[in-house]
Amino acid sequence: MVYLKYKTGGEQMSSIVDDIRATARQLLTDGKVDVVIGYEKGSLPLKATPCFVRSPQDIDKLIWDETCENNLAAFSTLTEGKKAIIAKGCDSRALVVLLQENQLVRDDLYIIGVSCQGVINKKKIEAETGEILEASIADGKVTVKGMVCDKEYTFTEVKDASCQTCRYPNPVLEDIHIGGSIDVPQQAAVFADVAEMENKTAGERQAYFQEQMSKCIRCYACRNACPLCYCKECFVDCNSPKWLTGGVDQAENLFFQAGRVLHLAGRCVECGACSRACPQDVDIRALNRKMSKDVFTMYKHESGISMDSNPALNEYSADDPEAFLVKE
């Protein structure tokens, strides 16, 4: 679906890293920003970790590859001062929504845009290989030495579900672009995954979500990893009114997840950070994708793709669909 102008890994990738570092060095030495938020190598195989560079000597920590899966826009509202952020397509969309919602000051933000070919979903790999002991990425291949078995994957096989359906691999808002860009064929959004779920019976869907919700431990990693869940007080923490008891009953878990998804209606940028952050592997994405599909089909809206388009729920039209009305 997505045609690459450059190959995964190899020289292109390392020149991107060099350019990121050079840009970061320039920004810090010129005093344009106080901090550069990027990625450094994590302590686990195939895992990068967010990195806050404040002085030029830390710049060489910065990396860029297919393991840079966190959405750094989540840190943009938490980090004080002027900041530069390395942004993939989805991260930049989140920044657009945050700017539209007045959560960020544009002048305090320097967006280092990098086109993204998708990130690796470790959980997918670990389901087969067991815990990963060692891994390497080269020439579009991911070679994994696991506790159960060793395996080689093509990058496409282990790409995160969100990246499989991504239509905006190139940053939509940026101050500088690093590396090549990715050609995306012009076509409408495809929601095959949602359609598949919709085609199941209500009972099957109910059973599916109950099973998913039974896994949730309400650690709120999904909420906190989400760049757009920035409420000072989340409804789950609110005690007047007290929406939830704090129990881990699956109905309450669904209340939480459904409530969260509804708050993200027309705002979710489908970065998939929530699903990847979930330590229990709850299929949160299934809910967010449904919401995206509905917003897209009913209101022709995709969030965060342009500073000029209003969020779907901030607008209305006299002829909005009314299929939900009770049949009399």
Binding site: A74, F75, T79, I217, C219, Y220, N224, N239, A277, P279
Partner: peptide, 22 residues
Amino acid sequence: EKCLSCNACSFACPTCHCFDIS
């Protein structure tokens, strides 16, 4: 700085024992 303030580490910890009574 990179901590998201979620409870995943505490809930996964076999020794964490803080609680709230409501």
